[in-house]
Nucleic acid binder design. Structure first.
Lengths: 155, 155
DNA sequence: AATAAAAAGTTGGGATGCCAAATATTTGCC
DNA sequence: GGCAAATATTTGGCATCCCAACTTTTTATT
């Protein structure tokens, strides 16, 4: 499988990182996973965000975000509140416990972020990031056949 | 979130790729996802592998592999067979339909593999891959606190 | 030979992700 | 103002992933 090893490598490496990271968060008694911590950071920054804001900022679809917020609400890290200006909307409020959990997680996340960089030059990390960022342009349309349209538009 | 943007970037980029890829496989009527296709390739290469072999080669744990094989078996792409030499073992046989599905998927996977490389130098892709490969050394222990032990052993 | 330890595969639980559909509400258009 | 279109959120379905526990079988140890 020489040609698809790149995709395989991306997926399996990512799985390794995610597992390691979330286990580290367990070991640190953070009480949240990486993605949940991300939500808490966003709310610490600016409390009372809507579900749509959060799903966009976290980079997941709205139904995924519903589950994430459900689980955070269940353990008392966030609360849902009706929006005063739009009856379709909820404003998600972080609790003090949620702030604390997020702060605890942050230490672990920083550490592992540093571990990722260990042994690599800054220029190399830049290349790594720019390739990842290219995915957002290349694979933004969720229709896998749309790349043909992109190529046609270049002519 | 400056420091953890790298991890966030890895996860969200990977999600983009995975979604795009699996949608492309749907569009191509491959009838399998990327991971399922990986299993079919392995079986085309060498049919009758054990579940343990497959889980190792695919890079997932054995219970994940059980689900994957269940779903492939359900659509008639593989079959489970008792091992003649070890009563704990099963040998997974790919069917002709499974081979066909894998071949169809391969075309799409190759295309997207090329898309990933588009716009980047070969040396850049090498750097990208070597950073991903470093995850397998750095994050191999699933205990996130084990990095401290590693550091201690260096003294 | 007997027994402890390890291995094979499955089940169950939890988390995360996307897609589609549904309902209530808001916005845009005529 | 009335109605079509869009939006906010949830629910349900499916897939993928890890962890823990379990039962049967095999291997290793005594």
């Amino acid at each position: 499988m020489p040609d698809d090893r790149l995709i395989f490598l991306i997926f399996t490496a990512q799985n390794k990182l995610r597992t390691y990271l979330n286990n580290a968060l367990v070991a640190a008694n953070a009480g949240v996973t990486f993605v949940q911590a991300g939500i808490l950071f966003l709310l610490k920054q600016s409390n009372g965000r809507t579900m749509s804001d959060l799903s966009q900022l976290i980079g997941v679809d709205n139904s995924t975000l519903t589950g994430l917020v459900d689980r955070l609400e269940k353990v008392g890290f966030v609360a849902r509140q009706a929006s005063p200006t739009d009856r379709r909307s909820l404003l998600i409020q972080v609790t003090p416990e949620g702030i604390a959990a997020g702060d605890k997680a942050k230490v672990v996340i920083k550490r592992i972020n540093e571990e990722i960089k260990t042994g690599h030059l800054p220029e190399e990390m830049e290349i790594f990031k720019s390739i990842l960022r290219s995915f957002f342009e290349k694979f933004n349309k969720n229709d896998g056949s749309s790349s043909d349209d992109v190529q046609l538009s270049h002519k």
